[in-house]
Measured scan of single mutants.
Amino acid sequence: PKDEAKKKVKEAIKRGDEETAKRIAKKYNLDWDDAKREADEER
């Protein structure tokens, strides 16, 4: 599900692992900028 994928993307971003985050986002066709902004807001 997309929500689960987005959570994984945000967790990867918070760990500083943007490569993984981008790969997950691409795989699930998520909006990378959107997920990154959300992760930054939660930090």
Rank of each mutant, 00 (worst) to 15 (best):
P1K: 14
P1D: 15
P1N: 15
K2N: 13
K2S: 12
K2Y: 14
D3I: 09
D3W: 14
D3R: 07
D3P: 05
D3E: 14
E4W: 15
E4M: 11
E4Y: 13
A5N: 05
A5G: 08
A5S: 03
A5E: 04
K6A: 09
K6Q: 08
K6L: 15
K7T: 10
K7V: 09
K8S: 08
K8R: 14
K8C: 12
K8L: 15
K8I: 11
K8H: 09
V9Y: 05
V9N: 00
V9K: 00
V9R: 00
V9L: 14
K10V: 14
K10I: 15
K10E: 06
K10A: 11
E11Y: 04
E11T: 04
E11N: 07
A12I: 03
A12G: 02
A12D: 00
A12E: 02
I13C: 02
I13A: 02
I13G: 00
K14A: 12
K14D: 08
K14V: 08
K14H: 12
R15P: 00
R15K: 09
R15A: 11
R15N: 11
R15L: 09
G16R: 03
G16S: 02
G16E: 02
D17Y: 05
D17R: 03
D17H: 05
D17M: 04
D17G: 01
D17S: 02
E18C: 15
E18G: 03
E19C: 05
E19Q: 09
E19Y: 07
E19N: 06
T20V: 08
T20C: 10
T20I: 07
T20S: 08
A21Y: 01
A21H: 00
A21D: 01
A21G: 05
K22A: 04
K22Y: 07
K22I: 09
R23K: 14
R23H: 10
R23A: 15
I24G: 00
I24S: 01
I24T: 03
A25S: 04
A25N: 01
K26M: 13
K26D: 12
K26S: 12
K26H: 12
K27W: 13
K27H: 11
K27C: 05
K27L: 15
K27R: 10
K27I: 13
Y28S: 03
Y28R: 00
Y28E: 03
N29S: 09
N29T: 03
L30A: 02
L30M: 05
L30P: 00
D31N: 13
D31I: 06
D31G: 03
W32I: 07
W32P: 02
W32D: 01
W32E: 01
W32M: 05
D33A: 11
D33W: 09
D33R: 05
D34M: 12
D34C: 07
A35S: 06
A35V: 15
A35C: 12
A35M: 15
K36Y: 10
K36P: 03
K36T: 07
K36M: 11
K36V: 14
R37L: 09
R37G: 06
R37K: 10
R37V: 06
R37D: 05
R37M: 08
E38T: 05
E38G: 06
E38N: 05
E38W: 07
E38F: 06
A39N: 05
A39E: 05
A39T: 07
D40Y: 13
D40P: 04
D40C: 12
D40S: 10
E41D: 11
E41K: 08
E41Y: 11
E41A: 13
E42R: 04
E42M: 06
E42A: 08
E42T: 08
R43N: 13
R43W: 12
R43E: 13
R43H: 12
